[in-house]
Simulated assay, not measured.
Amino acid sequence: MSDKELYIQKIQSEINEWKAQIELFRAKASSATADAKISINNNIKAFEEKVEEGKAKLEELSKSTESTFDSMKKTFETKWEIIKTAIKDTTKKLNA
């Protein structure tokens, strides 16, 4: 398996973990009060948007050729860190 394929698998695993977290947060929302549900659902929506953004960036990276992968990976990693930070912030809000 190439470095590109391994890297993409690693990132896809992170996305899958985030999807699982979303389901846990939905379960939390179902047992919350009405006011809390609104807040939780808004945060879940923000979380989902970042996950979708991450999936789109990963799709762009996966379409790269072996020769352009390294340069695209650097750009991807910068954007990926921004997405991860936003997801961590949202996770903190949802766990509060």
Rank of each mutant, 00 (worst) to 15 (best):
E60W: 09
K57R: 13
A20T: 12
K45T: 10
V51R: 01
N42G: 05
E5Q: 11
S62R: 13
E49S: 13
K88P: 03
Q21V: 05
A56M: 06
D70Y: 04
D89L: 09
K74L: 15
T33A: 09
I22M: 08
I40A: 00
T68F: 02
I38H: 04
E5F: 04
L58E: 02
N41R: 07
N16M: 06
S39R: 13
M1W: 07
L24W: 00
I38A: 11
Q12V: 06
Q21G: 03
T78N: 10
L6I: 10
V51M: 06
L61H: 02
L58V: 06
A86P: 02
Q21F: 08
D3H: 14
K50Y: 06
S64E: 07
S31D: 06
T75H: 05
L61E: 02
F25H: 00
E5W: 02
W18M: 08
I38Q: 10
K92L: 11
F25N: 00
K84I: 05
T91F: 02
I15C: 01
Q21M: 11
E59I: 06
S39I: 13
S62Q: 15
D3Q: 11
N43D: 15
N95R: 12
S2T: 14
E48H: 03
T75I: 14
T75L: 08
Y7V: 01
E53T: 13
K74H: 06
E5T: 12
E49I: 14
I8D: 00
L58P: 01
K37P: 02
N16D: 15
E53P: 01
Y7D: 01
W18R: 04
K63E: 13
I11M: 05
I83G: 01
E14S: 14
T91M: 07
I87L: 15
T85S: 12
K74N: 08
I87V: 15
K55R: 12
L94Y: 03
T75D: 14
S67Q: 11
E23D: 15
S39V: 13
Q9T: 09
E17Q: 12
K88L: 08
S67G: 04
A27N: 11
I44A: 01
F47N: 00
I22F: 03
A86V: 03
I44T: 03
S67A: 15
E60G: 08
M1V: 09
E23A: 14
A56Y: 05
I11H: 01
T85V: 10
R26E: 14
S30Y: 06
N16L: 08
F47Q: 00
S67I: 12
W80T: 02
T75N: 07
